[in-house]
Design a protein around this nucleic acid. Structure first.
Lengths: 120, 120
DNA sequence: CTCGTAGTACGGCAGTTGTCAAACTACGAG
DNA sequence: CTCGTAGTTTGACAACTGCCGTACTACGAG
């Protein structure tokens, strides 16, 4: 990992803007996580799958809506994305979030696990 | 604390509906905390002031907007309110939130402290 | 080059949210 | 009872959000 810079993952055309760690805003993160679809994405990402293409998620929304949700997560600083062929791989920014807001992501993930299977 | 029930705090007229601990939903809490004004309220409440009247907060919004934000926080289960004369006292439901989503409120509050005074 | 796949961008639409002002209610003091 | 204070309710408005379909752009395989 010598010269690879975080914001220039794709060598060719497509660029993806990510906020730097210091730029991550709490309200943005909370807002990003306050949506069921996005919370599902984050939960699946946290569930061991380090890098996943958007299509790998089983979301109850259309393609364009999926793009939208990933964009919200990325711009909030919750996930990092980079291209790999025609696929866009997504990964949780666990370390960055931990550095910026220690314990926050873990607490939300733990809460999400509880709130999904509460009565069943 | 024998016969006092949580949802019937005011003996006379006005009632305030609160969700029970089990009814608190994660997305609701995150959404409630994702607003700057509400986050300010929660931070001030956590900052030692156990019970505060709405007017005690220095919020940059009108009276009716303040009422609205308190209502969102209350209905999300983040705060508990009860009447005291003409004032409406608000208190964080720290214990309930801790029971439902352990560590979540603490992590958000700690994050809020960091995000308020980062560059200054 | 052509085709299929993965995803983006562009409207557009309905529902929600944050905001306010104005009129109203509840309580306490006098 | 009257007045002031604290808060609520209503109605309105602009902005945003989530959602969709359609058209478009990369990239890889053949």
């Amino acid at each position: 990992m010598p010269t690879t810079e975080p914001d220039v993952a794709a060598p060719s055309g497509r660029r993806l803007a990510h906020p730097s760690t210091e730029e991550i805003r709490l309200e943005g993160v909370l807002h990003a996580l306050a949506d069921p679809v996005r919370l599902t994405i984050v939960r699946e990402l946290a569930d061991g799958h380090a890098d996943m293409a958007c299509i790998a998620f089983d979301l109850p929304v259309s393609k364009s809506t999926t793009t939208h949700h990933f964009k919200v997560l990325r711009e909030a600083g919750v996930i990092r994305q980079h291209y790999e062929g025609t696929s866009r791989m997504s990964r949780l920014r666990e370390d960055d979030l931990e550095a910026r807001f220690p314990g926050l992501l873990a607490a939300v993930l733990e809460a999400a696990r509880r709130s999904v299977a509460p009565s069943a």
